[in-house]
Simulated assay, not measured.
Amino acid sequence: MTATTTGMLVGAVLALTALAFGFWAFVFVAIAMAIGFGIGRVVEGKLDVRGLADALRGRRSS
Rank of each mutant, 00 (worst) to 15 (best):
G58L: 04
A34I: 07
M1R: 10
I31C: 04
I39P: 01
I35L: 14
G58K: 03
R59T: 08
T5C: 04
G40Y: 03
A53G: 03
F28S: 10
T6S: 07
T17V: 15
L19Y: 10
L52M: 14
A25E: 05
T6K: 09
M1F: 12
W24L: 15
L56Y: 09
E44N: 12
S61V: 13
G36C: 08
V29R: 00
V29C: 10
L16P: 03
F21L: 10
R50E: 05
L19M: 11
G40H: 00
A12D: 02
V13I: 15
A3M: 14
M8L: 15
A32H: 01
A3E: 11
A12I: 10
A18F: 12
V49N: 08
G11R: 02
G45R: 07
L19N: 08
A20S: 14
R50M: 07
L16H: 08
L14A: 11
G38K: 10
A55N: 05
G40Q: 04
T4R: 09
V43I: 15
K46W: 00
I31Q: 04
S62G: 12
L16D: 00
T2S: 13
G22N: 08
A15G: 14
A25H: 07
W24T: 11
K46S: 13
F23N: 09
A25T: 07
L9H: 01
A18Y: 10
A32F: 04
S62P: 01
L9M: 13
V10Q: 05
V43T: 12
R60P: 06
A55I: 09
E44I: 05
G7W: 00
A55D: 03
T6L: 14
A32C: 11
T4H: 03
I39W: 04
W24I: 12
T2N: 14
V10M: 09
A18P: 00
V49I: 15
T2D: 13
A12P: 01
R57C: 10
D54A: 13
G45H: 06
D48M: 02
V29Q: 06
F23C: 03
A34K: 11
R50H: 09
L19Q: 11
R57T: 11
R57F: 10
V42W: 08
G45K: 07
I39D: 03
L56A: 14
G38F: 05
A34H: 10
G38R: 08
V13Q: 05
A15H: 00
E44P: 06
